[in-house]
Nucleic acid binder design. Structure first.
Lengths: 209, 209
DNA sequence: CATCTAATTAGAATATTATCTAATCAGATC
DNA sequence: GATCTGATTAGATAATATTCTAATTAGATG
C-alpha cells in the first residue's frame, strides 16, 4: 500500500462521527437519512462523511429505488487495519545475521508464507477491495478465498441471498465463488442456510504440496 | 477503549509526516534533530508531531543528556490497530440464536478466551501502554506477558541490555520480568544473548487447568 | 557562571475539515 | 409530465491542523 491510501484510511477513522457511523453499520446496512437521524446531523453531513469512508475503502453501497444503503466493507477494514504494522515491518532493514538456525526454521517458513499471502492479496484485490479476477492457480485462489471469508461472522447463519450479497462486494460472479467456498470447506450449507466452518476445516494454501 | 482514545490514535496516523516518522523509528530510536533532518522539516515541527504520537501512545521517549530519543511503542501500535475492528465487533448485538451447536462449541470457547484476554490487558495496561503492576494470578500474568512479548521480533538476537530497555517501556522492574520471560519459555538465553522462542513453546493461559 | 546543544513554546500564516442552510438533482410513482 | 423522496452540490462559517520563524527554556560542559 502506498502512503496516500494509508493516510486516507487513518484519516477516515480519525473522526468521532465516522467511527459512530461504522459502529452503527456494523449491525447491518442503513441508508443516509436513518444515519442522519441516529446521529443527529443533517443529510449533507452524512454525504460528506460517506464520501470519506468510501474513499478509504471502508464502506460500499447499494441502491434500492431512491434509497442508498451503506455497508461496512469489513474485510477491507480488517486488512487496512494492519497497514501501519506492515509499514513498520517493511521499514526495518532485514539484519544480515544468520537467522537460519535450527531452532527457528519453521518460524522462518511461517514468515515467508505470510509475506506470500500479502503479496497475492495485493495483486488480486484492488485498493478499494474488489477482486480483479478469480486466481486460477489453486494456491493463490485459496489465499484469496481465505481473505474474503474472513469478513464473515463465525457461527452466524446466512441465507443464500446474504452470502450472494456479501460476495458481490468483491466480485459479480457470486455463484461461482459461493460454490468454491463450499467445495473448499470454508462454509457448509444445510437446507439453504450457509455457515462458516471452523477454521481447522478450511482448505489452506500452506497445506499444499 | 473509549471513542476519544481511538480517534486520537487514528488521527495520529492520519498524517503523512507522522507515518514517515514511524517508518524511520521502526529501524530504531532516533532524536528530534535527526528526524528533522531526514524529513526536511524544522525541529518545532517534530516537537509538534511527537506530541501527537505520544498522546496516541504510539511512541515513548528516553532522555540521554540533552538529547531525547524517540522509540516506537510497538506493542501498543499493534494493539490499537485492532481498535476499529473491536468496536465493530462489540457493536453487533449478539443475535439470540442458538449458537451453541455441537459444531462450534470450540469456536465459542476461543471467542470467550479472546474476550477474557482483552479484558485482562485492558485492566493491567494503561492507555499509554504501561503495565500497572505484574498480575499475581498466573493466568493473568501469562496473558500480560504474551501481550508484551509480541512486540519483540521473531528470530532476532537481543543483548540483555536491549531486553531490559524493551521491558522498561512497560515497567521499571525489568529484571523480574526478564526472568519470567525465560521461566515461562517466551524466550531463551544463550551466552547472554536472548531470543524469542517459537510460539509453540510459550506458556499459554489457555492451557491452564 | 558563561556557553553550548537540543528541545520547546509562542504566535502567525495557510490549509484542511466538519457542519450547516439553501438550492439542485436523480429516480420512482401517480 | 408533475410530484414526491432521498441524496447531492454549493457555498458559508467556525474549528483544527500543519508548518514556519523567533524567542525561550533546560540541561550539560568547560
Amino acid at each position: 500500500m502506498q502512503l496516500d491510501q494509508l493516510v486516507t484510511f487513518y484519516k477516515a477513522l480519525g473522526d468521532p462521527t465516522r467511527v459512530r457511523i461504522l459502529a452503527i453499520l456494523a449491525n447491518g446496512p442503513l441508508h443516509g437519512q436513518a444515519l442522519a437521524g441516529k446521529l443527529g446531523v443533517t443529510p449533507p453531513t452524512i454525504t460528506h462523511h460517506m464520501a470519506k469512508l468510501r474513499e478509504a475503502g471502508v464502506v460500499y453501497e447499494r441502491r434500492d429505488k431512491n434509497t442508498i444503503y451503506f455497508y461496512v466493507h469489513e474485510a477491507n477494514v480488517i486488512r487496512q487495519s494492519q497497514a501501519i504494522v506492515n509499514v513498520m515491518e517493511k521499514a526495518k532493514d532485514s539484519p544480515v545475521e544468520d537467522i537460519f538456525t535450527q531452532d527457528n526454521l519453521h518460524v522462518q517458513r511461517r514468515h515467508q508464507m505470510a509475506a506470500e499471502k500479502t503479496q497475492v492479496i495485493r495483486s488480486f484485490i484492488t485498493p478499494d477491495g474488489k477482486l480483479k479476477q478469480i486466481p486460477s492457480q489453486r494456491k493463490k485462489k485459496l489465499i484469496v478465498f481465505e481473505y474474503m471469508v474472513r469478513g464473515l461472522e463465525k457461527s452466524r447463519k446466512y441465507k443464500e441471498q446474504e452470502i450472494n450479497e456479501y460476495i458481490r462486494q468483491f466480485h459479480e460472479d457470486y455463484a461461482t465463488i459461493r460454490r468454491e467456498f463450499i467445495m473448499n470447506h470454508y462454509m457448509y450449507r444445510e437446507e439453504g442456510i450457509y455457515e462458516l466452518n471452523p477454521e481447522e476445516m478450511w482448505a489452506k494454501a500452506e497445506d499444499l504440496q
